[in-house]
Nucleic acid binder design. Sequence first.
DNA 1: TTAGATGGGATGTACA
DNA 2: TTGTACATCCCATCTA
Length: 266
Amino acid sequence: MSSLDSDFQDAIDVIQRDADHLYHESGINHYVTLECQPPPGRQGATCYPYTPLVTSPVAMADWGETTSWPHIVPDLSLPPPGHSEPTQFYPVMQLSRSRKGRKKLRLFEYLHEALHDANMVDSIQWTDRGSGTFHFVSKNKEKLAECWGRRKGNRKTMTYQKMARALRNYSRTGEIVKVRRKLTYQFNPAILQRLGTGHLAPPAGHSVGHMPRETLGSHQHSVSADMGYYAPSGSEWQVWYGQHSSAYQAEYDLATVLTSADGSKI
DNA sequence: TTAGATGGGATGTACA
DNA sequence: TTGTACATCCCATCTA
């Protein structure tokens, strides 16, 4: 790449960062058309000019109808009835992060945005919008990753592999979990809801976005003290899932059988 | 057997 | 300056 291109890219990066900061500062998830457009002469993915995101809840599926969220279904590690183990806490997922001033666009926000962009359907698509399940298109997943990398202002080219790694990190917090299907992931219902699409609500009196610790990975070492928490009991989970889909129970049962069979966590 | 997908530890970076 | 959260790198393992 010529130095001219490099300088141009640097300028783009600066503009992007400022723009991101400006827009997120105001709490509006709007995106700059300038981003993702390759500089003159730069080869690469044909990133899309951003199409204003329409987040009308009407257009979105109802979580209560088809939602499947098997990955957060409690498994055998749930305490037995009456068990009084110390309460386990789960972080509240909030787009406006608990860390004040954290305004950077996050990957799951970008993916959500891409899912609503007609120009990106060849890279990422809903598998089941109702359940928040989406998948990458194998042929063009790298394109999406490159767009993400440029969006972040990375010097190096983002790859699907790296992007997927970041996605897997989300499984620790429950924002996005991996589905046992090729190139397929699933949004946390609360994340979808906060992004303006989901309707699924947690049990009455509880805030949204909490997942059983078992689903958060093996080492959820620390949780910010300034996050909100909700500590559902096993029975609450079952009530919740039972309310929203009978499939939950079936999947819960299946998960139970599977975990019983191999003695491992899901 | 192999390419692609996935998992996870180590490390880098931004921010309060 | 330091701690934390998150992103990225890199390599091992899994799977179709």
